[in-house]
Design a protein around this nucleic acid. Structure first.
Length: 365
DNA sequence: GGCCATGATTTCCT
DNA sequence: AGGAAATCATGGCC
């Protein structure tokens, strides 16, 4: 962006010797006598301008000063103004407002949904939990992996915010003659750079014509540039979140056996409800609580258990008998429990495995 | 390293 | 929406 200026100088500057306006200016001075000398002067000046960037800083400074004091400077300045006026029109055309980028909105929405953008911690992690739950259907209450996920997410969040702040642009409008509220600017890369460029342009405006409008334009160019940096930041943050998320999902896929106690509780329920091993939502919740696992894990377990039991009843016979005996014992100790039509006492009985009570009702054919 | 048990996921069905 | 069945992927044992 910054190289636009020199380029502008270049393309117009080279042709300048032949510029009609320049010729006119050249004749404005003393009658044609030393026209040759002036041409020479102009050539010198242009040459000097063109090569000023090759100089060391001090040299360039000195040369700038010299040029400023050159007798042809006002003329040159006028020419520059003229050229400016002509080109500015074409520049205007290219300056239409770009519509709010839908891509950017998408990124913003996603970051918001993931709890990276938006309000502080509380809302953030809640959103994260919601997102995770939505992604996996797992209760939000779960365990080490989940908190690990949240920790990583908040790390991303923090980095995102510190980075974002650097490139954030508070609306700095160069008011009137000055850009006075400098002390109010948040100190960040964008604003510092903007201020720097504005100062530079102001200073340059002594040598070449720069309207406030142009400074504004430059500022908006810079802002656009910084916006695109922000966009990149948002994009890579999104990517990071996605990666984290998929890792989290993978981690969840890693199976860990339930502890013995949980398995016993589940088996106990299963075999004592063999006739209808479909715990209600409430029963699932209770089991989940007792086993300190989630409701969907309970559902998974019963799903797996039913199908595997059905597939190979023989294999589970021993297990069935064991739990049946157990519940039988507890049932007798409570005595007055026979009320239920078909659960606790019946399952085991005499060796018959399809467990008399496991009626193939429901969907099990 | 193969093998089975087992929790999780996917697909299809009702 | 919830379940059956198939499938995936890992834990853990030999």
């Amino acid at each position: 962006m910054m190289d636009e200026q020199p380029r502008l100088m270049h393309s117009h500057g080279v042709g300048m010797a032949g510029h009609p306006g320049l010729a006119q200016h050249m004749q404005d001075g003393t009658a044609g006598t030393d026209g040759e000398g002036r041409k020479q002067d102009i050539g010198d000046i242009l040459q000097q301008i063109m090569t000023i960037t090759d100089q060391s800083l001090d040299e360039a400074q000195a040369r700038k000063h010299a040029l400023n004091c050159h007798r042809m400077k006002p003329a040159l300045f006028n020419v520059l103004c003229e050229i400016k006026e002509k080109t500015v029109l074409s520049i205007r055309g290219a300056q239409e407002e770009e519509p709010q980028d839908p891509q950017l909105m998408r990124l913003d929405n996603m970051l918001l949904a993931e709890g990276v953008a938006g309000p502080e911690k509380g809302g953030g992690s809640a959103a994260a939990a919601a997102a995770a739950a939505a992604a996996g259907g797992i209760g939000a209450d779960n365990s080490a992996e989940h908190s690990d996920y949240r920790a990583k997410l908040s790390q991303i969040r923090q980095i995102y915010h510190t980075e974002l702040e650097k490139y954030e642009q508070l609306d700095i409008v160069p008011t009137g003659g000055g850009y006075g509220q400098r002390q109010n600017f948040k100190k960040n890369a964008c604003n510092e750079f903007t201020t720097h460029v504005m100062n530079l342009l102001r200073e340059q405006s002594r040598t070449r014509p720069i309207s406030p409008k142009e400074i504004e334009r430059m500022v908006s160019i810079i802002h656009r540039k910084f916006s695109s940096i922000q966009m990149q930041l948002k994009q890579s943050t999104c990517e990071a979140v996605m990666i984290l998320r998929s890792r989290f999902l993978d981690a969840r896929r890693k199976r860990r056996n339930f502890n013995k106690q949980a398995t016993e509780i589940l088996n106990e329920y299963f075999y004592s409800h063999l006739s209808n091993p479909y715990p209600s939502e409430e029963a699932k919740e209770e089991l989940a609580k007792k086993c300190s696992i989630t409701v969907s894990q309970v559902s998974n377990w019963f799903g797996n258990k039913r199908i595997r039991y059905k597939k190979n009843i023989g294999k589970f016979q021993e297990e069935a008998n064991m739990y049946a005996a157990r519940t039988a014992v507890s049932a007798t100790s409570v005595s007055a429990q026979g009320s239920q039509a078909n659960s606790p006492s019946t399952p085991n009985s005499a060796g018959g495995y399809p467990s008399p009570c496991y009626q193939p009702d429901r969907r099990i054919q």
